[in-house]
Amino acid sequence: MANQSGNVYGLTILSPILEDVNAETSHNCAIRMKLASLPRDEHSPFAKVSSTHLARLVVMDDVVYVGMPSCEEHLKSQYLLFETNFDGGLDDYLTRMAHEIGSEVDAVWQHCHGYPGVQDVSAFIAYMKRCQVTTTFYFADVNDKTVGQTLAALQTQAAVARFIDEHQGKSAIELQKSFAEFLQKLKNAPTPVPGRPGSGGPPRIATQMKWGTRN
């Protein structure tokens, strides 16, 4: 199925945007203003739907005209384009969107034709599926790891680098003891937070390696 690569699902949604010549703010502009106000870090709505690897929202104004001798044509509606890459199945993901970021979803999609809102989750899922466009070819470079596994691995990578840096030249006994403590600390570390700039979630185990500058 082209919408999936391994365990990762690639969802593409095209939602037609309402047009109201009497509106004080056009619907496409209202969507853009709302999107511009949404945080893009760990406070992003998509960080709450924690199975999201990467997601984008785009107002597509029109198709392009590439020049003669091709025909010039235009869309009659603008479309809200939602492209997301997540772990697991589509229904679970859309249900999580409705439950966990319903107000943000409503604030954006209320400007689209036929949008039923998230109150009725099954109607919301049915709406999104009507707007779904099947992916023709989907490529995921890492398609067998969840977001949580990736964030944990990034945290581990940083921690291992620091451990190695700090334990050079130690005796075998010291090294074994320190490593056991290190592993325990790593296992007890809180789950990394998606969307947070850094190598993982709190507490970030910052590395202090200075490549090529060590005296």
Binding site: D41, F46, H53, R56, V58, M60, V142, Q149, L151
Partner: peptide
Amino acid sequence: QFDTDYYYTAYPYATTNDVKAAHRVQ
């Protein structure tokens, strides 16, 4: 090309190579 209005990534400081390397370390 047309521009993106909103863009989110769960691991903003990590490149694809970082992700693959981190999984190898793990």
